[in-house]
Design a binder for these strands. Sequence first.
DNA 1: GATGAATGAGGGTTCATTCAT
DNA 2: CATGAATGAACCCTCATTCAT
Lengths: 217, 217, 217, 217
Amino acid sequence: MVHALTVRSDTEPDGQTFLEAARRAQILRATAEVIAELGYAKTSLARIARQIGVSKGVILYHFTDKDSLIRALIWDVYERGAAAIGAAVSREHSASGKLRAYISANLEFTAAHRLDALALVELGSSYRTPEGLRLDQLAEQAMPLPHGLAALDLLPIFQEGLRSGEFREFEPAAMGIAVRSAIDSAGNCLSRDPGFDVRAFAAELVTTFDLATRRPT
Amino acid sequence: MVHALTVRSDTEPDGQTFLEAARRAQILRATAEVIAELGYAKTSLARIARQIGVSKGVILYHFTDKDSLIRALIWDVYERGAAAIGAAVSREHSASGKLRAYISANLEFTAAHRLDALALVELGSSYRTPEGLRLDQLAEQAMPLPHGLAALDLLPIFQEGLRSGEFREFEPAAMGIAVRSAIDSAGNCLSRDPGFDVRAFAAELVTTFDLATRRPT
Amino acid sequence: MVHALTVRSDTEPDGQTFLEAARRAQILRATAEVIAELGYAKTSLARIARQIGVSKGVILYHFTDKDSLIRALIWDVYERGAAAIGAAVSREHSASGKLRAYISANLEFTAAHRLDALALVELGSSYRTPEGLRLDQLAEQAMPLPHGLAALDLLPIFQEGLRSGEFREFEPAAMGIAVRSAIDSAGNCLSRDPGFDVRAFAAELVTTFDLATRRPT
Amino acid sequence: MVHALTVRSDTEPDGQTFLEAARRAQILRATAEVIAELGYAKTSLARIARQIGVSKGVILYHFTDKDSLIRALIWDVYERGAAAIGAAVSREHSASGKLRAYISANLEFTAAHRLDALALVELGSSYRTPEGLRLDQLAEQAMPLPHGLAALDLLPIFQEGLRSGEFREFEPAAMGIAVRSAIDSAGNCLSRDPGFDVRAFAAELVTTFDLATRRPT
DNA sequence: GATGAATGAGGGTTCATTCAT
DNA sequence: CATGAATGAACCCTCATTCAT
């Protein structure tokens, strides 16, 4: 017992307790659940607390702010998503291969982490920082994002394909918008219809954007 | 004064005064302005009233509810949009022509009515009915929508093209999602970057989805 | 009735209704009461509202902020106090006469408006602006104060008496502190002991500081 | 561990450990620091704990209450102040000498222990017991105060001087208020202007109240 | 001795809504 | 028609305090 008190083997390198980390994870999960179910506008700390069955204070004990809670969730999902997508993309060597991998990996992540994906899409459209910035504007500047996030950027892929002649001539920015918005729609579809087949949808998108980008032979 | 209240000699066929209609239109416009500028979450009746320079009560006199105000705005924009788009689509006779017209007309409407389009996109992602339904879910069931809204439905176009063999084989629902989400993105782009060239974007989308849907020769 | 609706004779030149002004005054009074009784730290909007028997919202309807409510109270009392004191001081022509008038008028105001004086003293020591400034620091810079407030400044009186030789040599700033703090103490005394004789106290202070400042003959 | 808890071989006569006393002193000091810097209203246990770099619990382990912590601080400063002042006063034999000593010693203490003096002044105006009593009211009844505190009482000095004819006729209570409030102002001045010259101020006050009290020759 | 975790009361504030005028 | 006034619920947040470890 003295041992336990002094050695503190329950302290992690990053200064967080096991229990602390578990609580944070639990809260983040509950937050995603509530956002996915009710939408961000109706997501209150009280509602999140009720989801877990604790008092409101618990949340503010583990996260300084409502805002920082939301950002932690964003970061958390981004990080895991970017890692998966980045890995898949970098396994491919042609631009069209990378595009296919990008779409597939994105939707694979959506399928595998429905709740997170849903929450993120909802946040993408409804969350604003206290200063009024949207999630994507935030990503550009204020919030330090995981390195792998670069993997979420389509432009390098398009530029590579355009340079190599693999792709037909098109405006990369516009195509990027089309691809991303299609991908993000999957989350919405899922929330409307739990039976929505994300993987089938992925296959359709892959073909669609393959045809839309490839230089006709 | 009692006179004015009861006789209502200026009553229109549908039971609305001229002035009444003007006020409603003014309020709807102000609502769109505020939503476009601040986002739906920060759109309060007080803020809308301030936009016009009247008291909050005015709004609730003309609209029973905040919710019914929002629905009226949605209906209003839908109606005008659907009319324009429906007309453009019906001028075409081939499925691919209709698809091109659909995309162009949509974005033309966005370009011509930035405020309305912006507001509608914002509402599409952030608004929920008191029962928790989203705009599109609402469209499907609860709210009686203008007849012309069917014009917003892509599926008939796709089905026609698939039946006639003009289009390659694809899943109409998935393609519909891709097209609609790409179109709706224009509103977001516009709100983030006022200089965003909607018509150039339209041209890109037309080509993109033409290539994506046409049966390869 | 039509008359009443259209003419709106109840609107004052400054844009405030009679009723509005009355409510504001009532709220200000209640605020002073609560501050005087419980101290600023325990003065909450809820408590003030309860004092009047209305809901919290009423207060925030008439005053944007808790802070602006407090400032309105400060301004209100200052203005009336400064007017009275300034008038009394300017009726005198010698420096020592002005000092006597200054002390007397201050305490006369305290005696006549116990609640206000008490609240102001309490605010002087406990209130801080959201940025952390005290009342006197606020007076120096941020808040536009009534013109007559200059009347509250002792330094000109001391400087005049020193220049004319009417006063002995002393440090005006230090003497100012002594005089003001003695005056302000009356409020505290009053709150501790409702029977405290402010006017007798005033007479003592007049003599005390007369002796302390006059050039000995 | 159980051992350490039960045996307490390092227990002092008054039941306090050496370490215990040191912790208490450290906490009291931190409390004074925070109060002096932020004012009593913004002084939370969390803030005090952070000042030392410990958890909130530590404070509540050593002091049952926030209130008892504050009282302990008051007592502590009073005790030391009263000792210094009492000693200085008792070295004088004339009433006027004692008054001069009283003023000088008070401000000397303020100058020497700025933090403590500042905290005490702040508490004097902002602290209230849970029952709503102010510091001075508390001193009169509720809190057992160090014996030496009587040294802080001016009345005996005044009464002595009045009886002996050394002082002119005046109301001792009123004069006491004037003197004490002037002295206490030094703390405020110090917190507003760190460069405030307390000793010069002391000299001014000594002269001022000497003139104000002495029987004119 | 000390910590981290959790609670619950209360604070200020926003806002849709109601109502008398 | 329109306004001003008021309400009450909900929201985010702070903080003293309790408790198991």
